[in-house]
Structures are given as C-alpha cells and as structure tokens.
Amino acid sequence: MVHALNEIRRVLVPDGFLIDLRPIVDQWRVEVISARETRETGRVTDLPLGLADDTAANQAMANAEAHGWFLREHEEFFSIHYAWDSASKMEEWIDEEWENFVSLDEETRRATRSAWALANADSQVRVKVKMLITRWRKRT
C-alpha cells in the first residue's frame, strides 16, 4: 500500500494531486424507503476485516504524509446509498459481495423483510454507506 502511494507520487506531475475515495465501515444504516416514508430497520455489523482495512488505509496515508510525499488539503465524509428492489436481494448482495467486511444480524433481516412486505409496491431497501474523500497534494 505504501509502495503504491510512492508509485502514484512518481507518475504525478509536480503539484499534481491524489483523490482518496473510499467507504468507511461504520455500522451502515439499513432502510426501507417508499414515497410515504423512510424507515430504519437496523444496522449492518462491522466485521474485523473491514475495520482492519480502514485502519490499514489510514495508516498508509499517514505514512505517506509522514514521508513528506503528500500534503492533506481537504477532507469530507459523506454518504451514498446502495438500493435494491427487495429485502432478499439486499441480503443476497451483502452475503455475497460484502461478506468480508460487514454482515446482517437476524433481527435486522427480519425487521427489513417485514417492513418491505408491508410497504408500497414502489418501495426499495437501501443501505447508507459512509464515504471518505480526501485531496492530497503532491509535495516536491
């Protein structure tokens, strides 16, 4: 990771910059949303590997800063949604695509299925994912 950051620095022009854009595990909120309302049905559970990935990424960027390779210019947290047409599709996605870093407990699964079953036909299930974006200026 640190080696990759040094490589990125090498291919950037003097005064070039790096945008670091990534999800941050933070017990993301699970919601059922319809035209009428948004209902929180639970939270995902953060898994050790997801937390370790965040720590490693933070450490790598801190190392790059300590080496004098990049200067942190600006940073913000924001959220994006992942949305599915049903609770089962959301569960399938989390179990297969995000299995290494977050999971769903049984209570959240039940609450989400129930809320989705009772909602309107236009309802969606979504997960609110926390994101971090940072602009790093190359130091010469």
Binding site: V11, V13, P14, G16, L18, I19, L21, R22
Partner: peptide, 9 residues
C-alpha cells in the same frame, strides 16, 4: 514519471 495531473484512488 510525471505522466498524470491527478490520480484517483
């Protein structure tokens, strides 16, 4: 070296 103005990770 110095091929790009910006990188997105």
């Amino acid at each position: 070296k110095a091929t790009f103005d910006m990188a997105i990770f």
